[in-house]
């Protein structure tokens, strides 16, 4: 097999920082399915910054998946924590992959999951707000 992961991918995979759950989360997103081999669940807590803009105050994730799925979902969480919802929505899977020093081409699709995951959580929050 020998899939070439960057050192950064392996580091995050070994020591992810954002795994867990948030009770009474403001938004929850679930994407993926077992047959594809990865599922991600994103919990967010929304707060406000000094300017009164909505920000991702806290984020926790749960991921079922391969090395790339775990590393990208944790990195995504790291990147959007503290960002305004508007900024967060601009983030794409490519940004996550770049942050990790790249992903093997065959594993690029794993990073889609993390993008879809946090978008689903933000959407869920906005839906609940209405």
């Amino acid at each position: 097999m020998a899939i070439d992961y960057t050192k950064k991918v392996m580091r995050v995979f070994r020591n992810p920082k954002h795994f867990g759950e948030i009770k009474n989360a403001d938004g929850v997103g679930v994407v993926g399915n077992p047959a594809c081999g990865d599922i991600m669940k994103v919990f967010i807590k929304v707060g406000k910054n000094k300017k009164g803009e909505e920000i991702i105050k806290d984020i926790k994730i749960k991921t079922f998946g391969c090395v790339a799925a775990i590393a990208t979902s944790d990195t995504m969480a790291d990147m959007i924590k503290g960002k305004t919802l508007k900024e967060a929505m601009k983030l794409t899977n490519k940004d996550v992959a770049k942050k990790l020093g790249g992903l093997p081409p065959i594993k690029m699709h794993c990073s889609n999951l993390s993008e879809e995951g946090f978008r689903a959580a933000i959407k869920d929050y906005e839906k609940k707000k209405k």
């Binding site: 679930v30 994407v31 993926g32 399915n33 077992p34 047959a35 594809c36 599922i39 699709h109 889609n112 999951l113 879809e116």
Partner: peptide, 9 residues
């Protein structure tokens, strides 16, 4: 989980 193929592939 609903087992559908190719969601994010």
């Amino acid at each position: 989980y609903e087992a559908k193929e190719g969601d994010h592939h």
